[in-house]
């Protein structure tokens, strides 16, 4: 996996990869990549790369759309029972 990452990183840093002007063989010759991976890189087969390296999107959401009127109220939720927390989880106000 480490060598695959290194190959992707090297290709990422080559602006002419898009134009097909990159000699993939020489760029990754020292990395001992499998024939399958080299073929994937040459053909820019992203779906095959996904299956080999796992480049499917993970959850990256990291914001909340609305704010509580009172942040302290939310803080006090830490002391609630699981049941109460479950009820409050569908509230519109979602800041912490």
């Amino acid at each position: 996996m480490k060598n695959y990452i290194e190959a992707i990183e090297r290709i990422s840093l080559c602006p002419n990869f898009e134009q097909g002007e990159l000699d993939i063989d020489s760029l990754v010759s020292d990395l001992n990549l499998s024939e399958e991976m080299i073929t994937v890189l040459k053909s820019k087969d992203s779906s095959q790369m996904e299956s080999i390296l796992g480049s499917q999107h993970k959850i990256v959401c990291m914001l909340v759309p609305a704010k509580d009127d009172d942040d302290n109220e939310d803080e006090s939720e830490d002391d609630k029972s699981d049941e109460e927390q479950s009820e409050s989880s569908s509230l519109v106000a979602v800041s912490f």
């Binding site: 996996m1 695959y4 390296l53 796992g54 480049s55 499917q56 999107h57 993970k58």
Partner: peptide, 8 residues
């Protein structure tokens, strides 16, 4: 965002 980026 991706497993490959995690590895990186």
């Amino acid at each position: 965002s991706t497993h490959i980026m995690e590895e990186w």
